[in-house]
Amino acid sequence: MNLSRRAFLVFYRNLVSYKRFVLPTLVGSLVQPVFYLVTFGIGMGAYMGAFGGRGYLFFLVPGVLVSSVMMSSTFECLYGAFVKMIHEKLYDSLIATPVSAEDAVAGDILWGAFRGLISGGLMMIVAFFMGVFPVSFPAGLLLCVLMVLIGIMFGSLAMIVTSYAPNFDFFNYYTELVITPMLFFSGVFFPLDNFPAWMKTLAQFLPLTHAVEVSRAVYSGVYGKGLLLNLGFVLALTLLAARFGLGRMKKRLIK
């Protein structure tokens, strides 16, 4: 592993280029989650009664928030990284400088996490105006840190997929067979309590489940005893995925 502070230079490069895309990407990352909030939260929520003593929106917001972090970081590290690798040959020019392959990829994972943070942050603001917000201001800040961590986790997982991808179509396997199902089996829209036991077990292996739990705890201020386990899962998977993703991408970039 040849990782250095230069990863942040690659992040900076993305920031410079981002200013041209700010508006379309903001709209892009905001529309879908807001759509979920309005249709599920307000529309369906009206029939749902109270969830643990509070409205459905209080249940829904923390989940949709981390889902949007997942979506943004995943797409950035799938499509964004693939375009840079294959179409723009950007990585080739990066690794010809003192930037190492690991720096370049790590910079893009960080970038994916940052895009996730923006999506999640926007959600937080939208939810705020709908009357749903974290239990305290420090809790809100803590959530921002957690969003970065969750973004790094999903970005790294996506990088692993990218390192194997022969073309764009390959990403459909991941988005349709992993990401989309995960959205529905991780307790984002409804609690897992009424699922059959095997499904609940399966859910424990989905990274989004743990991310949702963490987010929900910060929003509600109820820190259950399972929370450490959730955090531990997220941390462990982040380290593992980052390490493997960087290694795989290095193999692909340096031939």
């Binding site: 230079l9 900076y12 490069r13 410079v16 895309f21 080739d92 010809a96 400088t97 003192p98 930037v99």
Partner: peptide, 28 residues
């Protein structure tokens, strides 16, 4: 080392000036 690559590896999202400035960062 300075490398003039065979492929067009310019940063297409950036201007000529930005390409140079961003690249110079990589060399500190």
């Amino acid at each position: 080392t300075g490398v003039i690559p065979q492929e067009m590896t310019l940063d297409t999202d950036l201007t000529v000036f930005e390409n140079m400035m961003v690249f110079s960062k990589f060399f500190d």
